[in-house]
Each structure stands twice: as structure tokens, then as C-alpha cells.
Design a protein around this nucleic acid. Structure first.
Lengths: 203, 203
DNA sequence: TACATTCTTTGACATTTGTCAAAAGGCAGG
DNA sequence: CCTGCCTTTTGACAAATGTCAAAGAATGTA
């Protein structure tokens, strides 16, 4: 039993990585020593709603794992804020335009509820990989999975109407509706709040 | 001088990888032995316009590097074909929904000109990485870059109008216009051919 | 060159989505 | 419980994009 030998965070990390990879059998995929090493790098924080995990204009040096709560990545376009990513329990969030390239970010990362998050320094992760190159394989597997997910989201915009995109989101992440403002969900879907409101009414 | 010690394909591969990573100094980034090993895995083919590098319903087991020519990934939605990716010289193309997961693909990969392509077996690449785990790092760097590119394309749909997306494409890949049917470009931008035609007229 | 085929543009109109303004609803703090 | 703030819905209208049909342009082939 994984639970018996792991702290809650450790278990969560294992599960998170496993989910990202769509595998059922954890122990087959992720070696315990990797999970353990990564765990030792995490810093856990309890933070209030509206706290910014990352602020635009700065270089983002962390990846955040949501233990409890919800967060979104957004930025401003002509005064309006646009949500590009939403993450809940067990998911990862960061300023993707900065953490890899180390350029200044256009994004903000904001908590939408009082939350508990684990911060993973990207630099520390790199050092870990430097020290144990055999872990690189798992990073690659996770990135392959993330890349495929990104491709799916692009597909959504190419073939699905706003209503279909909303329906898909509801099927894939029910529950999100009750926790995230419809305005944020609308911009995440690439539409206005008014249009989303009307879509929700229609049969 | 890289050219002096490399075959054209070898040079191309180096440059391709380097471009994907947005780095200027090739030798700093990609070790020659890796490039050389990958080169040994490539199978070069000369193929005619309209040839399908990959057909939907099958499992895709290769990544293709375009040496000369243009290719697109597309699939059918309600009878119409929709282009999801376009690659020209020095770029990579594959059925991304299949090559990682080994599921049956919804995509076709089609040549738009008589082309010369290098096929890289994903299995062979995995074996290579298995044998030389220290290469994993470079795979990860490439994937990180690809992931960030995907995030940029999602952003395009979130904040830019059809006209702005067209203008961006023209700025980033001029030349594509003369080689790819406007119908394919339209679906790649997520609009109809008629709308693209009108956008091109407008000031 | 002439023909057939494919690609691109145009027109008329329908549908979807956006914009602006205001009203209605929900929730937290006093 | 009231008040004020934030969220969500609604209405009227504008703008963007899609659909269908047809004409025009370009291209390849006999």
C-alpha cells in the first residue's frame, strides 16, 4: 500500500505524476527514489485566496503543485484579464512562458481559494536531474504527456464551437463550475462572459 | 565550421534541433555524438506530392524531418478536412496523437509538394535513449521548447482575432502562402476559406 | 492550345459571438 | 438584517464569421 509508506504529499506527488502519464500502476512507472527526492525539494505554503503565486514582469522560477484549492494563470489584454490555465487539486501550475526560457513573464498566477500549495524550484529540479541523469526519462515522459494535452486543447479551438468547448469542459472537469467564476471560465474557453451565460441557458 | 565535418542531413538535424531550442551556439547545446547517433537512425525517402506519410486509424511509429518540401497534419470533421499542423524544411512532423500514446491516430500526414523526408523510428529513438540515458536531457529540452510553442498557439486563439492570427502567421512564416493552399491555411487558423479570402482583401 | 480540374474569390444572407448598458442575484462584513 | 460589492443574467444592437452557390483564376495534362 502506497499510503502506508508515504506522507500525504508524497502520495499526492506520485499520483499527480501518474495521472499526467495516464498510467494506472504507479509503482511500474515512477521509481520511489525519484518521488522521494522530488518530495524533498518541495516547500509547502498555506496561502489565501487572491494571493499571487507569480506576478507578471518577473521571471518565474517555480512550479506549483496544488494540494488543496484552485489557481489560474491569466494576463491582461487591453484591460481585460484572460485566463489561460486553471489547475485544481493534484495538478501543476506555473508561468509557462517564463519558467523554461527564464524570460520575464506576461502571466500572473493567482489563487482562487484559500489554498495549500507545494512549490518546486525549477533550478533545484534541474540540479537534481543533473545529479541523477537517469531521472530525465521521467521528465521526458511527463513532458510528452503535457505536450499531447496541449495539442488536444489546440484541436478544441480548431473544430469545436463555443458551446461544444463548454460541454467538453463540463464533462472533463465538472465541479470546476462551482469553484471558478464564470468570467474566468469564459475567457479560458476564448469567449465573453455574456456568451457563456447564453450558452448555459440553451438546451 | 560545422559544414566541413557533416553531411547535409547531419547539419540539418543539428540546425533543426538548435532552432527548436532557440539557441544560437550549436556546439554548446547538442553534443556531436548524439547528433551522429540520431543521424544513423534516419531513413531518407523521396516521395511525391499527396503521398501520405501517415494514414488515420493506424498507429504512428515515426517522426518525420522535412529536408525538402512541405507537409501538413490534418483530419476530417464532418466531411471537411482540417489542418492542425504545417511543417516545411528543417521542421518536424508526425501524428502527435499516436506516436507518444501508441493509440490509433485520427490524423493523416500528407506531403504538399514532392519532398525529401527523413524518417526517425520512435522505437529506435527510445532504444537509443535506453542505451544512452545521458541523451534524455536533450530530448527534454526539445520537448520543453515544443510545449512552450504549443502554449503560444493556444494563446493565439485566446486573444487574437482571425485577422491578427493571419498577420502573425504571415510575419512568422512568410513564404508559406505561396506553397500551401489557402484552404489549408484557413483551417489551420480555425476559420473558413471564404473568411480568409476576405481577410486578405481588407487593409 | 484547349480542356478539365482544382483553387480562390465574390455575393447574398444566416448564424454566432461581441459590446455596452442595466438589472437581478448572491455573499460577506458590519 | 441590512448594505455594499462582486458575480451573473438579460436586452438591444453591432460586428465577425459561417454557409451556400456561383463565377473567376490558376494549373496540369492531353
Amino acid at each position: 500500500m502506497v499510503e502506508l509508506i508515504c506522507s500525504p504529499s508524497f502520495t499526492l506527488l506520485l499520483i499527480t505524476i501518474a495521472l499526467k502519464m495516464n498510467f494506472n500502476n504507479l509503482s511500474d512507472m515512477i521509481p520511489l527514489d525519484l518521488a522521494s527526492e522530488v518530495l524533498s525539494l518541495l516547500e509547502t505554503h498555506h496561502l489565501p485566496k487572491k494571493h499571487l503565486l507569480h506576478r507578471e514582469g518577473r521571471i518565474c522560477r517555480h512550479i506549483y503543485l496544488i494540494q488543496k484549492g484552485v489557481a489560474r494563470t491569466f494576463f491582461y489584454k487591453e484591460g481585460k484579464d484572460i485566463t489561460v490555465h486553471i489547475a485544481a487539486e493534484g495538478e501543476l501550475i506555473t508561468a509557462i512562458d517564463s519558467v523554461i526560457s527564464l524570460k520575464r513573464s506576461r502571466y500572473n498566477v493567482e489563487l482562487l481559494e484559500d489554498s495549500e500549495v507545494h512549490a518546486l524550484s525549477y533550478q533545484a529540479l534541474h540540479s537534481l536531474l543533473e545529479k541523477h541523469p537517469h531521472y530525465e526519462k521521467y521528465m521526458r515522459l511527463i513532458l510528452e504527456q503535457l505536450y499531447a494535452e496541449g495539442a488536444d486543447r489546440i484541436e478544441e479551438f480548431l473544430f469545436y464551437s463555443a458551446k461544444e468547448r463548454y460541454d467538453n469542459l463540463m464533462n472533463n472537469k465538472p465541479g470546476l463550475l462551482n469553484r471558478v467564476n464564470l468570467g474566468h471560465i469564459a475567457s479560458y474557453l476564448g469567449i465573453t462572459q455574456e456568451t457563456l451565460s447564453r450558452i448555459r441557458k440553451s438546451p
